[in-house]
Design a protein around this nucleic acid. Structure first.
Lengths: 310, 310
DNA sequence: TATTTTCATAAATAATTCATTATGCTGAAT
DNA sequence: ATTCAGCATAATGAATTATTTATGAAAATA
């Protein structure tokens, strides 16, 4: 790029071209006339061609001048567009939001989202429901603005805020022999078969941790890839399962599944809304974050799952 | 225009955005890394929004950043277009030429033009054949690049170069009583009727001046608005006329008109190619000017018909 | 001819910009 | 834990730019 044309030059030039007078342009721009002359002269020397010609005392544009006027206007319009476009991004109105949610969150996230959309109608939301593993990949790639998930990842430096309780319970088929029993000891689980999600699933990790902690080793049965199939499998009597209580509301009420009152259960965990540390949240994302936190109704304490817990 | 975004800022920003690395951009631009950081920071402060976000050690564009990249590219493309467009004007190729010619010049100007076009095929020419009065108006309005005319105007500061002899002769119907006579005294014209062009016509002015100079007062008959009708009128026997010899070549050869050998005639005048003083001749116009002068084959002496004959 | 208008040029200076070096911080990799 | 790579910040100096005042020249006007 050889030419070092400045916006100022174009601006001053355009004014002269419009008035066909250096003096008028100077007045318009609150400058002295020589200042205008010099800017124009600089622009002329940049393109190495005369932009004005003075015949008698009247100033005329040359052919090159007419061309330059067009370009000047275009450039200035372009600049204004930048301002406009960027300002558009600054506000919430018309904002775009990319949200990823862990699959288990799905059950209430949709309700959350629809309430949000009611309030901020002009916000465009793209929602991806994915498993924990994929979600972490996406976070690494800086794809989503915000994610809703269970336990925030240890391996990534994220800012995570809890926004809702997430009790994990053990569910069983209503015909199961432990149904209705009170204070079932955890050790009783050693005789049970558990169906579960794929490795990497947050629920699976939490469950395993508890059993390991109390040195109970249940049997592990079928491995399933969606929460829905887990529930169906339990309903079909393939075994027990640890799930987020929110995801089985309907089935419990309908009596198709029951919650076992096992010792140490429910495991009280939380749902988090999270984003990568350093992420510049757009106004829209910030609003959504606040919305989720207030709707969730947990008193705030920032969870900072990072090595850099300085 | 509040924002004082510089091309440099956009250029540096674009480089960073392309590499997603300040250091790489610095290398590309032969700068130090802090210099790059500062340019980007300045741009960010101009639009008052973050363009990059650093997550871990990777640099990402923000939404605003992505928008800005588009605009940066557009702006830089725009700049290149200026250069291209202006360069297009600098050369002869594809140039535009607005030429006005006095109506009497028409007879050979067309031939001149066609020869010019043969050589410079890519030059677009707009040609207006108009009378002297209109031609001067056009000159005042700075409409034509060049004009071809008889006597250059006194009232306007033009640069005029003679390029061809312009003998003015007196023509008559072949049946006219003075036909074939040698050395007709100018005084004999006092008994003749002259048809002529409208006031303002160069030929008319020249003719009147000669008659006044030698104190001869011929009768003035019909006033005609085109050279063609003047010839036809003379042919029809309505009177004599003073015309540029070039315009009646054909008629003289065909014997439809004759030239009278009157004392002081032919008045030797010249055709001029002219443009307003101060006019920035485009390359194309300059070429045309040179072409006309060389084709005309008059040794050059610059005629400068101006008050400011300093 | 004298005056006014308008633009160009020159010199001076005020302001800003640009880039450098030096240094610190952070995250990732060894 | 140390080192390395990569960005930010600060201090500084050089270079450039923007702008002003003062002045001159040319053209229109009175």
């Amino acid at each position: 790029m050889a030419l070092h044309i400045t916006m100022r030059q174009l601006q001053v030039f355009e004014s002269v071209a419009r008035h066909l007078s250096f003096t008028r342009a100077a007045e318009e721009l609150h400058l002295t006339q020589p200042a205008v002359s010099m800017q124009v002269k600089q622009l002329e020397s940049m393109v190495d061609i005369a932009l004005f010609e003075q015949l008698g005392k009247k100033v005329h544009l040359t052919e090159a001048g007419r061309t330059m006027v067009k370009h000047s206007r275009k450039m200035m319009a372009q600049l204004n567009e930048i301002e406009k476009d960027i300002n558009g991004l600054r506000g919430v109105d018309g904002g775009q939001l990319k949200i990823c949610i862990a699959s288990t969150v799905n059950y209430f996230a949709t309700r959350l989202l629809s309430r949000f959309c009611d309030v901020y109608k002009s916000v465009g939301i793209s929602l991806d429901v994915i498993n924990r593993e994929e979600l972490i990949k996406r976070l690494e790639a800086n794809q989503p603005d915000l994610v809703l998930m269970g336990q925030p990842p240890e391996e990534l430096d994220v800012v995570a805020k809890a926004f809702m309780e997430n009790p994990l319970i053990i569910i069983a088929n209503p015909q199961h022999k432990l149904c209705g029993k009170k204070n079932i000891p955890l050790s009783a689980m050693a005789n049970e078969v558990f169906v579960m999600r794929e490795p990497g699933s947050g629920t699976r990790t939490a469950m395993k941790r508890v059993f390991r902690q109390y040195e109970v080793e249940p049997k592990f049965g079928v491995q399933l890839s969606s929460n829905e199939t887990v529930k169906q499998s339990v309903e079909a009597g393939l075994g027990l399962a640890v799930v987020s209580a929110h995801t089985v509301d309907l089935e419990l009420n309908a009596g198709r599944l029951v919650s076992l009152e096992v010792e140490h259960f429910p495991i009280m965990r939380k749902w988090f809304v999270a984003y990568r540390r350093g992420k510049k949240l757009s106004a829209t994302a910030q609003i959504f974050l606040d919305f989720v936190l207030s709707e969730g109704g947990i008193q705030q304490e920032s969870h900072n799952r990072s090595k850099a817990t300085k």
